[in-house]
Measured scan of single mutants.
Amino acid sequence: MQRVNMIMAESPGLITICLLGYLLSAECTVFLDHENANKILNRPKRYNSGKLEEFVQGNLERECMEEKCSFEEAREVFENTERTTEFWKQYVDGDQCESNPCLNGGSCKDDINSYECWCPFGFEGKNCELDVTCNIKNGRCEQFCKNSADNKVVCSCTEGYRLAENQKSCEPAVPFPCGRVSVSQTSKLTRAETVFPDVDYVNSTEAETILDNITQSTQSFNDFTRVVGGEDAKPGQFPWQVVLNGKVDAFCGGSIVNEKWIVTAAHCVETGVKITVVAGEHNIEETEHTEQKRNVIRIIPHHNYNAAINKYNHDIALLELDEPLVLNSYVTPICIADKEYTNIFLKFGSGYVSGWGRVFHKGRSALVLQYLRVPLVDRATCLRSTKFTIYNNMFCAGFHEGGRDSCQGDSGGPHVTEVEGTSFLTGIISWGEECAMKGKYGIYTKVSRYVNWIKEKTKLT
């Protein structure tokens, strides 16, 4: 034993070699072989497995989906700052455009905790909710729209109204504003409101030439003092309507412009014939205590009207009353817009006519005020429907199939267009061939041609 100890002390290297040989010859039971080890760690190889990531292109799944990435790591994937920024906006807080917040056709661009709407022409605001041009839906104005110097929408209202708090709607500024039905039992019968379409306001006024200088022999019209197929109006439903009495009662109609003036057809009036105007009328054979009678003290036909040349060209006249009318729910003026808007309103496509005229061709006159909704007829169809001249200051309205029309005794009465609950004068009943005849239409004086003249002559002093 002493000898062994001496050998170990003198030859430590020998001992180490012996131990190493023993270990190498022993069977290893701690580690699995290569094949079995792979069965336990069965993990798919990654895209760049075996390579240094710093030297390969980034992978979106590896960089940002398996674990949260930084902007720089995302930049490695896209290799483009702009594309990385677009991805980053949604990656950080989701897609803010998912709810489609942009209105009126706006395009949404996502941002971090926010979004941006790219608005089409005519709109602005956070969600493109603000109209900035009158060309689109009248700028959301209830009545009139004008573009300011910086191309912003400025709404306005006709006389007797003021802008509401929203700067879009119009509200009454006087007790009985024009064009409004205020009798409670008839307010439910107000005709369907007309909503502004998209309009090209630059070209809204037709490029028409008034044929002022045409000389033409007097034409022989049949029954051209021209509501057939209409309905009984309720008291106060058309408070701007008046009836004219002269040699015979209810020979023509008219509309209240203001307390002192009536507008009617020029062919209705004769110099030297006494005319009485009755406002607030409903049943011409009954006294309903809503009527107001006034005498006409002055007749002003349009300066281009000449019955000797043509009885229905420039067929418009103004009547001055001896005493002002007292405005109330049964006696209310009709609204008159400017030339541009009167023309736009007419193009809405349908209007209402009213009167006490004959209820059928050569038949009896109506006792109760009649009204009828009539569609506008395109000019080409209008011209083809008659052998008589249709001037540019006239328009056609009615039904091709016949059966409904204005008729004798309705002449001078109103053709009105309702705009968001307020009625505007767009025409004056003038003439036609018979009444409600198939293929024939009622012919009306186009008020847009005469609004400046009306307003100039009827100013209240």
Rank of each mutant, 00 (worst) to 15 (best):
E86H: 15
K89Q: 12
D198T: 13
P12D: 05
H282N: 13
V263R: 00
I17F: 08
V416M: 14
A149F: 12
I299W: 07
V4Y: 06
E67P: 05
V374F: 02
E76I: 13
P120G: 09
N135T: 15
T84R: 08
H282D: 03
M394C: 05
V447L: 10
D410S: 08
T381G: 04
D249M: 02
S49A: 05
N127I: 10
E286W: 08
W356H: 07
E53G: 11
V359D: 09
N104D: 02
T29K: 09
V416D: 00
L23K: 00
K126D: 12
T84S: 09
C145M: 02
R140H: 07
E35M: 11
F176R: 05
V257C: 02
L189C: 07
S411D: 13
A173K: 10
V263Q: 00
L52F: 13
R46F: 09
A337T: 03
S423N: 13
E208H: 12
G246M: 03
E66K: 06
V277F: 00
E434S: 10
E165F: 08
S70V: 09
I40E: 04
A279K: 01
A164Q: 07
E54W: 05
D232P: 12
A207H: 13
S448L: 02
D249Q: 02
T342F: 00
Y341T: 15
V353L: 05
I40A: 15
V451K: 03
V377L: 12
T225G: 10
E340Q: 13
Y371T: 13
P44C: 04
C134E: 02
C382D: 01
E231H: 11
E73P: 06
Y305D: 01
C396W: 01
S220K: 09
S430M: 12
M65I: 12
T81F: 07
N343C: 03
T186Q: 12
N306F: 04
T332V: 14
N80R: 07
L52S: 15
N304P: 02
A337M: 01
F123V: 05
N245C: 03
G442E: 04
A233D: 05
V263H: 01
S204K: 11
L321S: 00
V368S: 06
D95K: 15
L130I: 12
C18D: 01
E320M: 04
E76D: 08
D150S: 11
G421E: 06
C145V: 01
F345C: 02
E231G: 10
C97N: 02
V243M: 06
T445P: 00
I256S: 00
Y312V: 08
S411V: 14
L32K: 12
P324E: 06
S385F: 15
K457E: 12
T209P: 13
E281P: 08
Y391C: 15
M65C: 04
F360Q: 10
I390L: 15
D410I: 10
V377M: 07
Q408D: 14
S220D: 12
G105I: 02
L325W: 04
V377S: 03
L52A: 12
I443E: 02
N343Y: 03
V154Y: 11
N203C: 03
R46G: 14
T158Q: 11
G280C: 01
L19S: 02
P177Y: 01
K152E: 12
R294M: 01
E288Q: 06
G280S: 02
T218L: 08
K45T: 06
H400M: 11
C117I: 00
D33I: 07
A192W: 12
H361V: 15
G229A: 12
M65P: 11
M437D: 13
D111K: 14
S169G: 08
G421H: 09
P172H: 05
T225M: 09
W240D: 00
P239F: 01
D378G: 09
F345T: 01
S70M: 08
V153S: 15
N393I: 02
S204G: 07
T186P: 13
E27T: 08
K387E: 12
I454H: 02
R449M: 14
K152R: 13
C252G: 01
E434P: 13
A337K: 00
D200T: 09
L369F: 11
G402A: 13
S182H: 11
N80F: 03
G280I: 02
R43Q: 13
T190C: 04
E72G: 05
T461V: 11
Q57S: 11
E35F: 08
M65K: 11
V269W: 03
G254F: 01
L318V: 06
G357S: 14
A397I: 02
N343M: 05
L24Q: 03
L52C: 07
D95N: 15
Y115K: 04
E418M: 11
T422N: 03
G94V: 09
R191M: 14
N113K: 12
L163H: 00
P235R: 09
G403I: 15
I428K: 00
I210Q: 14
C134G: 02
L244P: 01
D150W: 06
N36R: 09
K459I: 10
E171W: 07
K137G: 14
C128T: 02
G122E: 06
N166V: 00
K274D: 02
G427Q: 00
K339Y: 14
V273H: 04
Q216D: 09
H282S: 09
P44F: 04
K152G: 08
S385Q: 14
Y201M: 14
C382G: 02
F388V: 15
A265F: 02
C407F: 09
N36T: 09
D93A: 15
G432S: 10
E54M: 09
A279Q: 00
K459S: 14
L24W: 08
C134S: 03
I429T: 13
L369V: 08
I15Q: 04
W240P: 01
Q143S: 00
T389M: 08
S11L: 11
S184Q: 10
F238G: 02
K39W: 14
Y305N: 03
G427S: 01
K293Y: 13
T209G: 12
W88T: 15
G13F: 09
L425H: 02
L327D: 01
V377I: 12
S217M: 12
T264D: 00
K234R: 12
V174K: 08
R298S: 08
C382V: 02
E259V: 05
K455N: 09
N306A: 07
D315R: 01
K457L: 09
E340N: 12
I275G: 02
S423K: 12
D338S: 10
K146I: 13
D378V: 03
R298N: 12
R384V: 09
N304L: 14
I390Q: 10
P197K: 12
P375C: 04
S49E: 15
T381V: 14
T458D: 01
Y161S: 01
S156F: 11
S114E: 13
V181R: 10
L327G: 02
S255W: 00
S423M: 13
K137Y: 06
E159I: 07
I428R: 01
N36F: 09
Q408A: 05
F71Y: 06
V263I: 13
N5M: 13
C155R: 00
V263A: 04
Y312L: 07
F348T: 14
S220R: 05
K152W: 06
E142R: 04
T461F: 12
S448Y: 03
I334W: 00
Q219S: 05
F251D: 03
G442R: 09
N135I: 13
G349S: 10
I316A: 01
A317S: 04
Y312I: 09
Y450P: 02
L367Y: 11
V248G: 02
L130D: 09
V183K: 08
E418P: 11
V202F: 12
C119A: 02
T190A: 11
Y312K: 06
R373G: 05
Y444F: 14
N138H: 11
L211P: 09
V30C: 04
G412M: 14
H267L: 02
C155V: 01
I316K: 01
K51R: 09
